[in-house]
């Protein structure tokens, strides 16, 4: 099974799920051979309140209800919100969400994120977090708290049994820099998504991290996301692991009471 472990749904003008977009995602999956999308719904600017991430997670729930065989959900929270853990418990235990999505409100190794990572470790659910090493002044200004691979490595030292996924090797800046740090952080996974489709990128990620830590994803770069895996110099067995086997193994670790 081909699993896109980093994809999104979004809001329509009425604040509910944009069904045109979520249906178009399924259509793209049919064309490109993607069986399952693991999705979140992000608010990209401004502070993230409970009401906002609760509504975002509600849209994910709507997407799953609309396409139950094709969507799985991440629970998106702002870790510093006092209701973050309650939201995670409700979504993961009550609605069957498969993991947690974090954006760039806080570095992943900061104390404010620690309770989220503790719960995720206890339940053995993945934490997919936005990350990267932007070298351009625009992104640096927009995202002062973006977690780099070094932040991920530090968080993994503190929570060695947590299932941490650094998002989009192709969407967050200097990916070669990221690989240097992630190769020293053996419990951190990396997803292949993002609009950057540099030749050799996936091969180098596999060489640095090992085949078992590289996870296929698109983050909305659909043809590019699939194409970069097809072009990587991998055996059929290894390609299948990247495309879904590795993430299925992560899902199999789930120990939610």
């Amino acid at each position: 099974m081909v699993i896109d472990c980093h994809m999104h749904v979004r809001a329509g003008k009425d604040g509910l799920l944009d069904t045109v977009y979520s249906d178009a995602t399924i259509e793209a999956g049919d064309l490109l051979g993607i069986d399952l999308f693991c999705v979140s719904d992000l608010q990209l600017t401004g502070p993230l309140t409970y009401a906002e991430f609760h509504a975002a997670n509600e849209r994910v729930k709507q997407a799953i209800a609309r396409h139950p065989k094709r969507y799985r959900g991440y629970c998106y929270v702002n870790p510093s919100d006092p209701q973050a853990l309650d939201e995670i418990r409700a979504r993961v235990q009550g609605d069957g969400f498969i993991g947690i999505k974090l954006y760039n409100q806080h570095f992943i190794d900061s104390d404010v994120v620690a309770p989220v990572l503790e719960l995720a470790t206890q339940w053995q659910i993945p934490v997919l977090m936005h990350g990267g090493k932007p070298n351009d002044p625009v992104t640096q200004k927009l995202q002062p708290n973006i977690s780099t691979a070094l932040h991920f490595a530090r968080a993994a030292e503190r929570f060695p049994k947590a299932i941490l996924i650094e998002a989009h090797i192709g969407g967050g800046g200097d990916w070669e820099w990221a690989l240097k740090h992630l190769r020293e952080a053996p419990s951190v996974f990396l997803d292949t998504s993002g609009s950057v489709i540099d030749e050799w990128m996936v091969d180098k990620a596999v060489a640095a991290l090992g085949i078992e830590r590289v996870l296929f994803a698109t983050d909305m770069t659909m043809e590019g996301g699939v194409g970069k895996i097809l072009d990587a110099d991998l055996s059929d067995e290894h390609r299948a692991r990247v495309l879904g086997g590795n993430f299925q193994s992560i899902l199999n670790r789930r120990a939610v009471p």
């Binding site: 793209a28 064309l31 490109l32 489709i197 540099d198 030749e199 990128m201 659909m222 043809e223 590019g224 699939v226 194409g227 970069k228 097809l230 072009d231």
Partner: peptide, 16 residues
């Protein structure tokens, strides 16, 4: 965009 970029995406865009 080869060899900066990987080639399959362009063909997938045309296919889709």
């Amino acid at each position: 965009g080869y060899p900066f970029k990987t080639p399959s995406p362009a063909f997938l865009k045309l296919q889709c």
